[in-house]
Amino acid sequence: MRNLLILLVFFATRFGFAQELNCNVVVNAQLTGNENFQIFKTLETQLNEFVNKTQWTKRKFKPQEAINCNIVINVTGLSGENFDASIQVQSSRPVFGSSYTTPIYNMNDKDFTFKYLEFQNLIYNENQYVSNLISVLAFHINMVLGLDADSFSKEGGDVYYKQAQRITNYSQQENYKGWKLEDGLQSRFALIDNILSPTFKDFRTVMYNYHRNGMDIMSQNTKDAKNEIVSALTFFKAMNANRPNSFLARVFFDAKAEEIEQIFSSGPNVEIADLIELLNRIAPTHASKWRNIKY
């Protein structure tokens, strides 16, 4: 009996929980003209294993709770062990009561250079700089975790954002772009600085209200859900008044613009004239999508 209990505990531990991410990593080296080099295939294999098997949090995730994401590394140049690239990170989460998944994060980080030797060990240390490759991946994964958590509970992403900030701080010791104040208004430094700033607290309110009070009740009461989404997006008005054309607003609408277009392009109809005016003011780069909305 004792051995049976031990075996049951083992299987519950081994198979009852999963890693945090269900992530597909692609290394695209077409722009180098040498996309068939074995090193790119090796890197892709290693990164898939690294991202999906590293324990990123202290939480135990059930298999159905694993966060779906995609990471595409577009390599533009290679010289020895030095890689020039950009990295696109996307994530989504399920919507309650449906098979639909809603996009959460869609970030194109162009300041990405790193060193890599084929078959080198890829190891993450949450408190210590290892390499720019590890730091950039860990930063964006913590952003994925943080935004996902914020969409389920109010300010639920704090622990992940603070880890992203810690990664930013210890990565500044090297001369890689994206980690410092002087690297511009759309850098990794700016992203985590903004999301933790009281000036942009409304952004996190939008993340929670849009998803929990809007998307997650869509299957139960579509009209109420759409009104809740309108109400959530209205929080951008005050944020835009304080900081026009903010990076966080761009990050949000890069992920959500197509979804917002689809939500309000079909019935039941709700009052959105003021919302359309606001969207054109705070997210003008998506004006073509806002024009497609009929109300």
Rank of each mutant, 00 (worst) to 15 (best):
S171T: 05
K177H: 10
L145C: 07
D109H: 01
G146Q: 05
S153N: 13
Y161R: 03
Q165S: 12
A138S: 08
D109A: 06
A190V: 10
G184N: 08
R188G: 01
N125R: 13
V144N: 05
I141L: 15
D148M: 06
K115R: 15
Q186I: 11
D148K: 03
Q172H: 00
Y176E: 13
S187E: 09
L181G: 01
E155N: 13
L117I: 14
A164D: 04
F119S: 11
F119T: 12
I167R: 01
Q128N: 15
R188Y: 04
I134R: 02
F114R: 04
R166H: 09
N132A: 06
N121Q: 15
L185A: 14
N142Y: 11
I141E: 11
K110L: 12
G157V: 01
S187N: 03
V144A: 04
E155C: 02
S187F: 07
Y170P: 06
V136A: 14
V130E: 14
Y160H: 12
Y170M: 10
S151G: 10
F139T: 07
K115N: 13
G184D: 03
Q128I: 11
R166I: 03
K154H: 13
D158W: 10
G184Y: 08
F119C: 08
Q165I: 05
K110G: 11
I123R: 11
L185S: 13
N142W: 00
Y176W: 14
N125H: 12
D111S: 14
L147I: 14
H140Q: 09
I167F: 03
W179E: 00
R166N: 14
D150P: 04
Q173Y: 08
W179T: 00
A138C: 02
K177F: 11
V130K: 12
E182H: 12
S187V: 01
K154D: 12
R188D: 03
E174R: 11
D148H: 00
R188M: 05
Y129A: 10
N169I: 11
N121W: 02
L122Q: 01
Q128P: 01
N142C: 10
Y116K: 08
K154T: 14
N121F: 00
L117A: 15
Q186A: 15
L133E: 05
V144T: 00
N175H: 09
N127I: 02
A138W: 08
S187T: 00
R188E: 00
N169F: 09
A164C: 02
L133V: 00
T113Q: 15
F152A: 02
Y161I: 02
N132T: 04
I141N: 11
F114P: 08
S171R: 04
T168P: 06
K110Y: 10
Q120P: 05
G178M: 00
K180T: 09
